[in-house]
């Protein structure tokens, strides 16, 4: 079943000015249910824009986005939250620092639901949260009443991840969510990511700068460059690839951009 359908997505930033950027250039993409898609790309390739457009933080100039067959192209981010859960690159963005872990989890527990003036944060739900925190394996279950600000970046990212799956989302968006972490913590968060995606059979899209993660995680990888999807690698193909292949691919693109008819003519004359 198709989970996300994207057609003709185009987004131009700073239109008409000197630093005009075509962040998305007629992007078409179909993501099926239980796909775990990793997205890699050069800086400014539009991979983060793609994620933001899916999440609703950025409204595209052209194109259509459907989630579960429903068109959401112009819906703002909060209206899509009933389908989508997010983990941000910046560990500070995913949680409210001055509120307790329990309160943060409650906010996630209510994702996409109406918030009534009810006292839901009772002993029962706290014990449920405690069990969930225990699954992170970070000894956070004892710190339910601690404020988020006292946690390390990695712990916060782990909690954000837990918050994202607390109400099983239709789509999980991960925006370079380990980029700001040290390698050891990043590995831990990646392990949790894999675990949650597998346990909950999630449909996930992960933007990453790490070719390793792109290769290692998920069943499908797309490569983006200058707002376009330049390659779509299936799970079978991924098994054969190495990081060098990714690097070569990007190197190829870089060279391709430098090619002019003159240069080709010169190279030909020097070659044969």
């Amino acid at each position: 079943m198709t989970m996300i359908e994207i057609a003709g997505l185009t987004k131009l930033f700073n239109a008409g000015s000197l630093d005009e950027v075509l962040a998305l250039d007629d992007v078409c993409l179909e993501i099926r249910e239980h796909d775990f898609l990793t997205v890699i790309g050069t800086n400014g390739s539009g991979k983060s824009t793609l994620l933001n457009v899916i999440a609703g933080n950025i409204i595209p100039d052209k194109g259509i986005i459907r989630i579960k067959g429903k068109e959401v192209t112009r819906h703002p981010d909060f209206k899509r939250a009933k389908y989508i859960a997010r983990v941000f690159q910046n560990p500070f963005q995913g949680t409210a620092p001055d509120m307790t872990i329990a309160e943060n989890l409650l906010m996630a527990w209510l994702r996409g639901k109406h918030r009534w003036p009810l006292l839901s944060l009772n002993r029962k739900i706290k014990s449920f949260f405690r069990d969930q925190l225990a699954s992170l394996d970070m000894d956070l279950e004892k710190r339910l009443e601690n404020v988020m600000g006292t946690l390390s970046g990695g712990q916060r990212q782990a909690v954000t991840l837990l918050m994202a799956v607390l109400q099983t989302p239709d789509v999980l968006l991960l925006d370079e969510h380990t980029a700001a972490l040290d390698p050891k913590t990043a590995a831990q968060v990646i392990r949790l990511t894999r675990k949650f995606v597998e346990e909950h059979h999630l449909t996930a899209i992960m933007v990453t700068h790490s070719m390793n993660q792109a290769l290692e995680l998920g069943n499908r990888t797309i490569m983006m460059h200058h707002g376009r999807i330049i390659d779509d690698i299936s799970s079978e193909e991924k098994k054969k690839l190495t990081i060098d292949d990714f690097l070569n691919k990007f190197e190829d693109i870089r060279k391709q951009e430098k090619l002019t008819p003159e240069l080709i003519g010169r190279l030909k004359a020097l070659y044969c």
């Binding site: 190829d252 060279k255 391709q256 090619l259 080709i264 003519g265 190279l267 030909k268 070659y271």
Partner: peptide, 11 residues
């Protein structure tokens, strides 16, 4: 050496 396929043929 055609422009559109050169990059696929030659490094």
């Amino acid at each position: 050496f055609a422009e559109d396929i050169f990059h696929a043929w030659m490094n």
